[in-house]
Design a protein around this nucleic acid. Structure first.
Lengths: 159, 159
DNA sequence: TATTGTTATACTCTATAACTATA
DNA sequence: TATAGTTATAGAGTATAACAATA
C-alpha cells in the first residue's frame, strides 16, 4: 500500500450542498424537467425518445448498434424506445438484405414532421441556455465536461 | 435568419450530440454511476440515502420539512428514504413536544459512524473531480451552474 | 385553512443479463 | 464465437396527488 499524497482540497469542511456533484445534479434535475415540459405537448415525447428520434433524423438512416456505439446508449433502452417509436409510426424499420439481423432505421414522414416541429424549440432552448452564460463560462464548461467524464471513472482504492 | 434546413449535419445546425444538455446529461450519468459504485459497499447506500444522511449529519438535528426546503428535495422522496434509514437505525426520529406533527431527525451512533466512514471517500472524490479541472474551469463552472439553473425555468412561448 | 408528513400510483431511467437468430 | 437485437427483471428517481393528523 503506497502512501498517497493528500489531494489539495482547500475546503476540507465543505458541506455536501457545496459539492460540485450535488450542484450539477440539481441543475440536471431542472434541465430534465424543462426538457420534459417542452417535449410533453409533442405526442408525449420523452427525453429519451426525442434523443433517439433526433439521432435517427440526423443520421438519415442508421441501425440500433450504430446508435448504441455512437451515442453511448444502452441497447436495451434503445430497443424499447425504438419499439415504441415504430409503433407510433415515427420511425420506420426495414430489414437489411445482406445481413438479416439488422434493422435499418429511418424517420417516417410523420417522424420527420415531428422532428422538424420539435427541433427549433430545442434549438431555441440550447440558445437560451448558452445565452445565459458568458463566453468564458461556455468555453470553460465545454472543456471541463470531458475532463469530468474522465475523472468519473475513478473508483477508489479498495482499502 | 433564413429558413433553416434540417440537413443531416450542417455546420450551423448543431447536431444533438453537441447540445450542452446532452453532454451534461452524459457527464451526470457517469457521475451517478461513480457515486453508486463508491456508496454500494457501505450498507448498500443509494445516492439519495447518502445525501439525506449527510444532510441530517450536517444539520445535527433537523426535520423533514426543513430538508425539503433547504435542499429542494421532494418530501415524498424524503419520507420514503427516511423511513428506510430509520428502519436501518441510521437515523433517529423523535417526536417534537410542542408540535406533534413534527419528527425531529438526527443521526444514531450507527448512522454517525457510517457518515464518518463514507464522508472522507466522498470528499476525496470531490477533490479528484476538482483536481481534474483548471482553476479557470472550476470557477467558470461554479458561476455557470446557478445561471443554468435559472435558465432552466424557461418554458417556451405557448405558440 | 395551512402545514407536517405518509402513502399510492404511475412512469422513466439504469443496469444486468438471459435469450434468439443470424453471421 | 461473435454480433444484432429483444426481452425480462429489479431497483432507483421523479411527479403528482390523495390523505390523516395537527396547528
Amino acid at each position: 500500500m503506497g502512501a498517497e499524497q493528500p489531494l489539495p482540497t482547500g475546503e476540507d469542511d465543505q458541506p455536501i450542498q457545496g459539492f460540485l456533484t450535488y450542484r450539477l445534479s440539481r441543475v440536471q434535475t431542472k434541465l430534465n424537467a424543462q426538457a420534459h415540459a417542452l417535449l410533453q405537448p409533442h405526442d408525449g415525447l420523452t427525453l429519451s425518445k426525442w434523443r433517439i428520434l433526433a439521432l435517427v433524423g440526423a443520421a438519415g438512416e442508421t441501425r440500433l448498434s450504430d446508435l448504441s456505439r455512437s451515442a453511448d446508449l444502452d441497447k436495451g433502452l434503445l430497443s424499447r424506445n425504438l419499439k415504441s417509436l415504430i409503433e407510433d409510426t415515427l420511425v420506420a424499420s426495414n430489414g437489411d438484405k445482406t445481413d438479416q439481423r439488422v434493422q435499418r432505421l429511418s424517420l417516417t414522414p410523420k417522424g420527420r414532421a415531428l422532428f422538424d416541429r420539435v427541433l427549433p424549440r430545442m434549438r431555441e432552448r440550447q440558445a437560451r441556455l448558452r445565452a445565459a452564460l458568458t463566453v468564458e463560462e461556455l468555453e470553460a464548461l465545454e472543456s471541463a465536461l470531458p475532463k469530468l467524464e474522465a475523472a468519473a471513472d475513478w473508483r477508489g482504492n479498495p482499502s
